[in-house]
Simulated assay, not measured.
Amino acid sequence: MDAIVQADLLEELKGKLQITWTDEDNDFKKMILKSEAYLSNLTGASFDFVRELEPKEILLERCRYVYNNTADQFEVNYRHELGRLILNVALGKVGVIDGTTSGDV
């Protein structure tokens, strides 16, 4: 993930959490990277979080759960969204698998 995308995600996450201070920015950046890795491991794909809004929203929600120490409930509460994301990756609608971009099949 490039620095510009990470900075945009950081600001969006902080807005979602209603956080205005910068003390935890490094922790949030790590949280974003770990959530990106989580989605990548789950789907076998990488995502463009600027263009693809569905994976972006799921990433931000996972960060919110992690921040609130409820990560163990994320998969339970988001199973439908995660299932839809996995299906959309498999159909080539979102994500990049092995160099194949969304829509290229």
Score class of each variant (00 low, 15 high):
residue 1 M to L: 07
residue 2 D to W: 08
residue 3 A to Y: 11
residue 3 A to K: 15
residue 4 I to M: 10
residue 6 Q to P: 00
residue 8 D to V: 05
residue 8 D to W: 00
residue 8 D to Q: 11
residue 8 D to I: 06
residue 8 D to N: 11
residue 9 L to V: 06
residue 9 L to N: 08
residue 9 L to S: 05
residue 9 L to T: 04
residue 10 L to D: 06
residue 10 L to I: 09
residue 11 E to A: 12
residue 13 L to W: 04
residue 15 G to L: 07
residue 16 K to R: 13
residue 16 K to N: 08
residue 18 Q to A: 10
residue 20 T to A: 01
residue 21 W to M: 11
residue 24 E to G: 12
residue 24 E to T: 14
residue 25 D to N: 15
residue 26 N to T: 09
residue 27 D to I: 15
residue 28 F to G: 04
residue 28 F to N: 05
residue 29 K to V: 13
residue 29 K to W: 03
residue 29 K to Y: 11
residue 30 K to V: 09
residue 31 M to P: 00
residue 31 M to F: 05
residue 32 I to S: 04
residue 32 I to T: 02
residue 35 S to L: 05
residue 36 E to T: 08
residue 36 E to W: 07
residue 36 E to K: 05
residue 42 L to P: 00
residue 44 G to E: 06
residue 44 G to S: 03
residue 44 G to M: 03
residue 45 A to R: 01
residue 47 F to I: 07
residue 47 F to W: 09
residue 48 D to T: 01
residue 48 D to C: 01
residue 48 D to E: 05
residue 50 V to I: 13
residue 50 V to P: 00
residue 50 V to F: 03
residue 51 R to G: 13
residue 51 R to V: 03
residue 52 E to P: 08
residue 52 E to M: 08
residue 55 P to H: 12
residue 55 P to C: 12
residue 56 K to N: 07
residue 56 K to Q: 13
residue 57 E to H: 13
residue 57 E to R: 12
residue 57 E to T: 14
residue 57 E to S: 12
residue 57 E to N: 12
residue 58 I to L: 15
residue 58 I to Y: 03
residue 60 L to Y: 07
residue 60 L to H: 06
residue 61 E to T: 12
residue 62 R to L: 13
residue 63 C to H: 05
residue 64 R to D: 14
residue 65 Y to M: 13
residue 66 V to T: 14
residue 67 Y to H: 13
residue 67 Y to N: 10
residue 67 Y to M: 02
residue 67 Y to D: 05
residue 68 N to I: 02
residue 68 N to E: 11
residue 69 N to T: 10
residue 69 N to W: 06
residue 70 T to P: 00
residue 70 T to V: 04
residue 72 D to F: 11
residue 72 D to A: 10
residue 74 F to D: 12
residue 75 E to N: 14
residue 77 N to P: 01
residue 77 N to D: 13
residue 79 R to T: 06
residue 80 H to G: 06
residue 81 E to I: 01
residue 81 E to F: 11
residue 81 E to H: 13
residue 82 L to F: 02
residue 82 L to N: 02
residue 84 R to H: 02
residue 85 L to A: 03
residue 86 I to L: 15
residue 86 I to F: 12
residue 86 I to G: 02
residue 87 L to P: 00
residue 87 L to V: 06
residue 87 L to N: 14
residue 89 V to R: 10
residue 89 V to C: 07
residue 89 V to I: 08
residue 90 A to L: 10
residue 91 L to T: 09
residue 92 G to Q: 12
residue 95 G to M: 03
residue 96 V to D: 01
residue 98 D to K: 15
residue 99 G to R: 06
residue 99 G to V: 02
residue 100 T to N: 04
residue 101 T to G: 01
residue 102 S to M: 08
residue 102 S to Q: 11
residue 104 D to F: 01
residue 104 D to W: 01
residue 105 V to P: 00
